[in-house]
Every structure is written in C-alpha cells, then in structure tokens.
Design a protein around this nucleic acid. Structure first.
Lengths: 250, 250
DNA sequence: CGACTGCTTGATGTTGCTCAACGTGCGTGG
DNA sequence: CCACGCACGTTGAGCAACATCAAGCAGTCG
C-alpha cells in the first residue's frame, strides 16, 4: 500500500514531466531527521515519523513550475519546506492570486479536506522544496494523535485570520492602498529588507490586488515620482516607509 | 472547575445584561438528548456528551442582540442551534459584514483557536439559540477524540471554501453583480423561497457587499424597474431568477 | 411637535477600467 | 540569421461606474 502510493505519486509527476528541474529528490524521506518539521509534525513519535517518511515524497520546483493544479484530484497534503509560492485561481476572464505563502507552511489545508479536488493552483515563484504527504496517512495522524490534530487546527486557524486581511485589503481600500500593502508585505514579512526583487510580474501584482495591469503600473510609477519607491524592473527599494504605510492605511 | 466555568459564563452575560431577552435557558444542558447536535458532537460518547453538557450554556438572542463582541476575550466556542447571524468587523470608518451564517453551525472556529481575543463581532439577525461551550472542554475533545477533531477540521475546511466565494464575489464583480449574488444567496440558501423578508438594512447590504448605502439603494431600485425584483421595504420577491443569476455572474 | 433613523433620488467629482499605441525582450520557425 | 508572434511594461485619452455631497420624504419615538 505504501509503496503503491509512492509509485502513484511519482507517476503523476513523471507523466507531466515536461517540466524541467522537477524531480523527486527522495522517495523515502527521513522525516525523523528533518530539521524543517512543522509544529504539528513535532508532535509525532518515532514510529509515526517513520510512517510519514514512507508516505511522503519530497520534490524540488523551479520558479514558474506548477506545484498543484486546480481541478486535479486531491491525494496529498503539500508542505513547503523552503521557498515561496503563489496560490491562484485561473478564471476564464480574470485570474485571481489568493495569496503568497512562504515556507515553512502547509498549503491549502482547508482545500485538502473540504473537497475531493483542488480548488486552487499553486505555482512556485522562487525555487521551492515541497513534501507531498499521502492524504490518508495525514488523516490517520489526525485521528490517532490529538496533539497533531490540535496543531493542525491552530495552523488552519491562523492562516484563516490572515485571509481576513486579504479580504479587507481587497474590498476596503483604493488601488494605491492595495499596492502599498503588497509592497509592505514583501518588505516586512517575506524579505525583511527595504530592497528586494519582487517575484511577481505587473500582471501578477494586479491579479493579487484585483486591479488591472495598467493601474498597477501607473501606481508604481506614481510612487516613484513621489520618491516613495525606487524601481528598476522588478527590483524595488522602499525609500519612504512611513509614507507607504500611510497610503496602505488609506 | 466545571461549575466555576459555568458561573464565569453567566457572569459575563449578566454584567452586560441591559440586553432584553438575553437569558441563559439552561445551565446544565442535556447535550445527550439534543437533536440539533453538530456532526462533530455526533462522534462523542455518553460520558463526553455529559461533560459537554456540564460545560456549556445555552442562550437565546433576539434580533439585533450582540452574541460575540470583537476584542472580547475568547473563552467559548459558539455553536448556533437555530437562527441566523451576521459576522462583522466594525471599523472606525467603514463596517464590514464578513458573512451571514445560518444554524446549525459553529461560529468562527478559526477565530477561537487562532487568537486569544475575538476578531469579529457576531449579531443575531433573527431570533437565535446559541450554545456556548467552554473552550478548554472543546480543546480536550480535539485532543482525545480523533473523530471529533477530524469533523472539526472538515467543518472549518468547508466554511473556508465558502469564504473563497465571498472573496471572489467582492473583488471580481461590479456592484449590481454583488447585490444580485446576495439576493440569490438568501433566496436559495437561507429561505429557499422566491419571496422573503430580507433581515438586513440597506446599510447592512452595503457593508456585506463593500459598497455604499446609496449605491445599494439605487441598484435595488434598478432591479425593480427591470422587473427582476419586487420590493416593499425589506420584503423581496424574485420575479426573474434567470435574469438575476445572469447579473450575478456578470 | 421636533429629533431621529432609514431610505431614496439627484447632481457632481473622482477613480479606475478600457482601448490604443508603442517599446522591449524572448523564443520559435522559416 | 532575421522575421514574427507573444508576453510584459509603460503611458495617454475617453468613458463608465461609483462615491460623495446634498436634499427631501416617511415612519417612529419621546
């Protein structure tokens, strides 16, 4: 059963392996010695960790690679050990980027349990390492290890409170405020540095904030004119953080 | 410990009992015989149900009564047995109604576990019966009953997938589409009837869709002119459902 | 009766989308 | 190799959608 599952996992990813750089690193991962364990996995004992190792595939994705495809069957829980991804829905007319998630984190846990198929696509926006854990194995840990279950609930809860901010950001603010918030998010939360390379195109930035590409571009230009930002392609330097913060709060 | 908790619960609600009609119905609720149990509670055995009964207060709220106040300390899990509520955040400038929740349902589970204080206010918009369950008791069920934990995770997951629709509704649609979606929501999901009394003011409708009171009013008037709706105060009759659906899909 | 709340409608200004033009870099195929 | 299509980025002009401001109306409560 375990090996079969592992093979299934591989099959899926070898079938569509026109992707470059997308290779399983380790089919029988040694979760026991993993130093990037989630808080939840920290509650597992050696036997459970061994079982997790037997039912988990670690994979490496390059920038732009598709990690999870919307509509595909839901047989894993994805945990990102390192890297950065975007979670998005690609509608016919417009795309929406739901959020940017940095490692370490579980991806779309509510999606994994709420539905049989994936509700979102996930794409790497930096080089990213992912553990794909067999959903049945994961469910067993929830059923038989209360501490694990509790940590998972905490994890989902916290991530949902963050979603609230996205919703407020995208419904209550004018466009410059939305862009400012996203810039601050990367500054403070992702890179913790006033100077960084934005891992998103202008189109992505627009999809993340629910505005058009043109508006996003114009707003960035305006920020440069106001000496709030310095921009060179995707390289951004925040020159006036208080100013940016004021705009983000509208 | 159990009785102390129960007394604490009561204290909170007697202190602020300028509210009319807000009375604990039953301090030692007989959860065992409750026919409105949640799926999660269905996994509890008699001993656990008895413990839940000892740590849970059932209360009745009238329309307009505040059930949970934003910023208050988080010591219960709220479960609505019957009725209808709005979950909202009252900002200084604007209010946001996050969503409308009908019984039976747990309220803001992610809020209960993700933070020490409540992130939202909850207000009854129809006569509503609520069970307030001691948070520590609830946590124990998660820790020691895997089936319960799993059901709670399913519950949170499904509710979060619904939140996605809210987000899409409020970011991807123009104002008439948002209003149309809300009308359809009450028609199909809440009342299952083309004719109903909207339990929201125009202001609430605006806060729920992220638009202004005036716009909401104008859009409703337009729908009447187009013979899509018939409106008399808060009474709404859907005359042209396909038309409404088309607008809601933009 | 006046004060107040909830609702509606009109006039006006602003925001931001759409359309369009133009430039750039990249990959593909002749 | 160049020509071409294509995604990305920037900027301008015009227009539709909305918010804001303002006025007025009906119902309610003290």
């Amino acid at each position: 059963m375990l090996t079969v599952l592992n093979r299934t996992t591989n099959d899926i990813y070898t079938q569509k392996s026109k992707m470059k750089n997308t290779l399983p690193i380790n089919e029988n991962t040694h979760c026991k010695s993993c130093i990037l364990k989630s808080t939840a996995s920290g509650t597992l004992n050696d036997i459970e960790l061994n079982e997790m190792g037997n039912n988990c595939t670690e994979m490496q994705f390059a920038t732009g690679d598709n990690i999870i495809e919307e509509g595909s069957k839901n047989i894993h829980v994805a945990y990102i050990k390192s890297g950065l991804v975007k979670i998005h829905v690609d509608g016919s007319v417009r795309k929406i980027i739901m959020k940017i998630v940095k490692a370490p984190a579980y991806l779309c846990l509510p999606g994994a349990f709420g539905d049989k198929v994936n509700n979102f696509s996930v794409t790497a926006i930096e080089s990213t390492t992912v553990c794909l854990i067999n959903l049945a194995t994961f469910k067993n840990f929830i059923l038989y290890n209360g501490d694990f279950a509790y940590q998972i609930i905490l994890d989902i809860s916290k991530s949902e409170l963050l979603n609230l901010h996205t919703l407020i950001n995208n419904t209550q603010k004018e466009n410059p405020g939305r862009i400012a918030s996203v810039i601050l998010f990367f500054f403070e939360y992702i890179y913790n540095n006033a100077s960084f390379i934005l891992p998103l195109s202008r189109q992505d930035l627009a999809d993340l904030t629910g505005i058009t590409r043109e508006s996003a571009s114009r707003i960035l230009s305006a920020f440069v004119k106001q000496k709030i930002l310095q921009i060179e392609g995707r390289k951004i330097v925040v020159l006036n953080e208080p100013g940016l913060r004021e705009i983000s709060e509208n």
